[in-house]
């Protein structure tokens, strides 16, 4: 989509940038203060995974609209090592980088839709959507 906001993620400084862009977009779209914070937090965790596991990648933010719904979509894309077992990665408490291991299952709880695709040695794409209610 032409209006998408693309934030390159190369260091921890870009995490702050991505979530500020997401916060502004969510507020413009009409989300409540609580939902804006949930969206910003989800972006922070997704961008953090890029920095921790893949070193670099991108966060793409966009507005989605269907006949009776509007929302914000966050796509996190990297060309990192990929995830060996998505089932494991989606379990609370699982981590391969010495982190808290709460990243992905936590993010799934913050949003309405969560899709993850990962290919070993090729990278990972996470696409999440939060709908306006």
């Amino acid at each position: 989509m032409p209006d998408d906001i693309r934030v390159l993620i190369r260091s921890n400084l870009d995490i702050v940038k991505a979530r500020q862009e997401g916060r502004a977009l969510a507020a413009r779209t009409g989300f409540s203060a609580t939902d804006v914070t949930l969206i910003a937090t989800a972006i922070s965790e997704l961008a953090r995974n890029i920095v921790s596991y893949a070193r670099q990648g991108e966060i793409v933010l966009g507005v989605v609209e269907s006949a009776n719904a509007k929302g914000v979509t966050i796509i996190s894309r990297d060309s990192g090592p990929g995830i060996r077992s998505i089932d494991d990665a989606m379990r609370d408490g699982y981590s391969t980088s010495g982190g808290l291991g709460l990243g992905l299952p936590g993010v799934r709880r913050l949003v309405d839709e969560f899709i993850i695709e990962s290919v070993l040695g090729r990278g990972t794409v996470v696409r999440v959507t939060k709908w306006l209610r």
Partner: peptide, 14 residues
């Protein structure tokens, strides 16, 4: 800690 931040932290499992 702001109320919405507290809400997000709990949802995230922190």
């Amino acid at each position: 800690i702001q109320p919405e931040v507290a809400f997000a932290m709990v949802q995230l499992g922190l």
